[in-house]
C-alpha cells in the first residue's frame, strides 16, 4: 500500500507542477524589463509592470481584446440557444432523423477546419463578411454546435421527465412544458455548454488569422501572432508575454469557479455510460 500513499501525495503535486510551470514562466517573462528579457533566468530579477502598461496602450491588443470578448460572447449565446433547442428535441422527442443530426454533429466536430479556410475567405471577401464580426461568429457557431448539442443532450437525458409529463397532464402544451419546467432544470447544463463554447471561440486561431486582418475583427490569438515590437526590428517577446497573461486570467478565473461544471460537461458528451 506504500505505493498508493506515495501516489496520493506526490501525484497531485506532480500534476500541479507540470501544469503550472509554463504559466509561471509566462508570468515571470511578462515581468522582466527590456534588458533582462534575455537573461536566461526563470524568475525575473527586477520585476516591472511596464510590459502590461505597454500592451494596454497598444491599439492592436486592446481592439483584439474587445473583438475576442464580443465575438466569443455572441457566438456562445447563439450556439447555446440553437443547441438547446436541438438537444431538447433529440433527448426528448421522437422523430425520424435524430440519428442524422447526431452524426452530422459528429462529422462537423471531426472536420479539419483548415480545409474550409480557403473557400470561406473567397466567399467572405465577395459578400463583404471578410474582417467583420459576423464573419467569425458564423464559423464559430457552426463548429461549437456539436459540442453544445452533445453536452446538452447528455444533460437533458438526466432530467426527471416525469415532471414535464405531469405538466402536460395538467394541460400544458409540449412547448409550455419545455419552457416552464425543463428550462430551469436544464440551466446548469446550458451553462456548462456555454463555458465550453466560449473556450472554443476564445481559443480559435485558424479562422482568426484567415478571415480578419485589422483591429476591426482581429481576435486575441491572431493579434498575438502578429504582434510587433515598438520598433521595426524589435522582438515583442515581453509584450506578448504580458498580453498572454492578460488573456489567460479570464480562463483561470472561469476554471477556478466552474471546474466542477467543466469536468461534467467534458465527460458527459463523449463517454457517458
Amino acid at each position: 500500500m506504500g505505493r498508493v500513499r506515495i501516489l496520493k501525495v506526490t501525484g497531485p503535486v506532480l500534476i500541479a507542477v507540470w501544469t503550472l510551470v509554463p504559466l509561471l514562466w509566462l508570468v515571470s517573462l511578462s515581468l522582466k524589463g527590456g534588458d533582462h528579457i534575455n537573461d536566461g533566468r526563470f524568475w525575473p530579477t527586477a520585476p516591472t509592470l511596464r510590459n502590461y502598461r505597454t500592451v494596454f496602450r497598444t491599439d492592436l491588443f486592446t481592439s483584439a481584446l474587445r473583438n475576442s470578448i464580443g465575438i466569443s460572447v455572441i457566438a456562445t449565446v447563439l450556439s447555446v440557444v440553437l443547441a438547446t433547442l436541438a438537444a431538447y428535441a433529440i433527448a426528448r422527442l421522437d422523430f425520424p432523423g435524430k440519428k442524422l443530426i447526431l452524426s452530422v454533429a459528429l462529422g462537423i466536430a471531426m472536420f479539419p477546419t483548415i480545409s474550409l479556410v480557403g473557400p470561406l475567405f473567397d466567399i467572405w471577401r465577395s459578400v463583404g463578411l471578410y474582417d467583420t464580426w459576423p464573419g467569425l461568429v458564423i464559423p464559430y457557431l457552426s463548429f461549437t454546435l456539436p459540442l453544445s448539442i452533445w453536452t446538452l443532450t447528455a444533460f437533458f437525458r438526466e432530467i426527471p421527465w416525469e415532471m414535464e409529463q405531469a405538466a402536460q397532464v395538467d394541460g400544458a402544451t409540449p412547448w409550455q412544458a419545455f419552457r416552464k419546467v425543463i428550462v430551469p432544470l436544464a440551466a446548469p447544463g446550458v451553462f456548462t455548454a456555454a463555458i465550453l463554447t466560449f473556450f472554443f471561440a476564445w481559443n480559435d486561431f485558424v479562422f482568426g488569422i484567415s478571415l480578419t486582418s485589422t483591429g476591426r475583427a482581429r481576435t486575441v490569438p491572431a493579434a498575438l501572432a502578429f504582434f510587433t515590437g515598438a520598433s521595426q526590428f524589435e522582438q515583442p517577446t515581453a509584450a506578448i508575454a504580458a498580453a498572454a497573461v492578460v488573456v489567460t486570467i479570464p480562463v483561470v478565473a472561469i476554471v477556478l469557479v466552474f471546474q466542477r461544471r467543466i469536468v461534467a460537461g467534458l465527460t458527459s458528451g463523449a463517454v457517458k455510460g
Partner: peptide
C-alpha cells in the same frame, strides 16, 4: 483544467 482552457 488550466492547460485545457488556455489559448493554444
Amino acid at each position: 483544467l488550466v492547460p485545457y482552457g488556455i489559448i493554444t
